[in-house]
Amino acid sequence: MGAGSLIALMIAAIAFSGIALLISKFVLKATTNKQKGEPYECGIPTTGPSRIQFNVGYYLFALVFLIFDVELIFMFPWAVVVKEVGWLALFEIVIFLFILFTGLLYAHKKGALTWK
């Protein structure tokens, strides 16, 4: 069975969630009031906006991840043919990982991996 099954699965997921939500919508009549619509913050009205500029700490990891993840993708084709290529493959991946590892060390030295 081919890629069509993915579409079937997606439709199934959407149908499942949609039907569940619809049932719950029909089962009861929702009432609203002002307090109900407040964002939950331990019962205290929030001060200031909730969507704000955020500390760079989280994004540094995302940046480093991006580099490593792309490199990881390069390794998949290699992994499939390791056994056929033999020792040369080991040689290649040693160089590849060495460069990656140096990158990691560099990021570590630069303090990108320390939470600020």
């Binding site: 964002p39 909730s50 969507r51 989280y58 990891f61 991840f65 990881l72």
Partner: peptide, 23 residues
């Protein structure tokens, strides 16, 4: 989307966390 500070913090944490462990 939740417009809630707890949610935002949780989402941010989750972002940093999941992408890291992916590797």
């Amino acid at each position: 989307a939740s417009n809630n500070k707890y949610s935002l913090l949780g989402a941010m944490r989750s972002g940093a966390q999941i992408v890291s462990y992916e590797l």
